[in-house]
Design a binder for these strands. Structure first.
Lengths: 147, 147
DNA sequence: AAAATCCCTATAGTGGCTATAGGGTCAAGC
DNA sequence: GCTTGACCCTATAGCCACTATAGGGATTTT
């Protein structure tokens, strides 16, 4: 079973360029090539791609995924690190949810300051945005993805 | 009252380079310059920066902020657009929270598949990551910031 | 006068892709 | 054999909101 990059993309629900990007980033090994220099993939790589895509759908960064793949590639190791990584990731997600809920409170409070169709200079929202002194800290969330 | 970029940064809780970046992006007008070519800011710009930073702390993108600043600069306009932008932003935040809560469910379910210190090849989590066929769609969240 | 602190411009890097330019390969149909 | 079209290749630039770096000049303090 040898498939080309287009079929791998189709099977794993991503773009062709994304696969090449993962290869460049070292998440996928360099594949075999056809006589015409096309990338050729086997069952192994399909599994690996599914693994990566599933991790991405769980919002893991490529760095986190790289760590998991390294463990995956040395199967006799203790899986405690897998658990730790996942726990850490869950905590990140929870922190992000907390931050966003705080944010929503601020936004809805702000929104209530203007209900009508006044001229902008009288709009309570813009006034609120200038004068409010609260500086909430929302956690950074750099590794998000859609699948 | 004429302050230099360092003090403006201090007063608005951001880096000097960030202010220059906002200027380059057209959110701040080009300021006056001292004889030694230093940027000089007045009360007006401090307010404008506070506005921008507060919007950022509410996770608005620079594009959204640009829109608000344009309204801000033409104060006789109807403020309905301000309300609409904020409503839209609130919806974005709510959607992101929803997506993250779904994510957390998946992550905790996955986490329960392994409790111990087994070799990686027997780890339920990695198995779950390979075999699970669910492909949840998490919304993209490109405009996040910390203040 | 020297050192420390501020400021300047310009450029490259971050993550996880997406988009574009400019080509090569291969199977099917005429 | 020749064209069409679908697929593939590499290399490069762009997205966002910064951050970091290099290499210098201005001002203030010692």
């Amino acid at each position: 079973m040898e498939i080309r990059i287009g079929e791998l993309a189709q099977r794993t629900g991503c773009e062709v360029v994304t696969i090449r990007y993962y290869e460049k980033e070292g998440l996928l090994p360099e594949p075999a090539r056809s006589s015409g220099n096309y990338r050729l993939y086997g069952e192994e790589q399909v599994k690996r791609m599914q693994f990566i895509r599933h991790c991405r759908s769980l919002d893991m960064s490529l760095g986190e995924i790289r760590t998991l793949l390294n463990l995956w590639d040395s199967p006799t190791q203790d899986c405690g690190k897998v658990n730790a990584l996942l726990d850490d990731h869950i905590r990140q997600v929870e922190a992000r949810v907390e931050a966003l809920l705080q944010l929503r409170l601020h936004l809805t409070a702000l929104r209530e300051k203007c209900a009508g169709a006044r001229p902008v200079e009288a709009c309570g929202i813009l006034q609120g945005l200038v004068n409010c002194s609260c500086h909430t800290v929302s956690t950074r969330d750099e590794a998000s993805a859609g699948v």
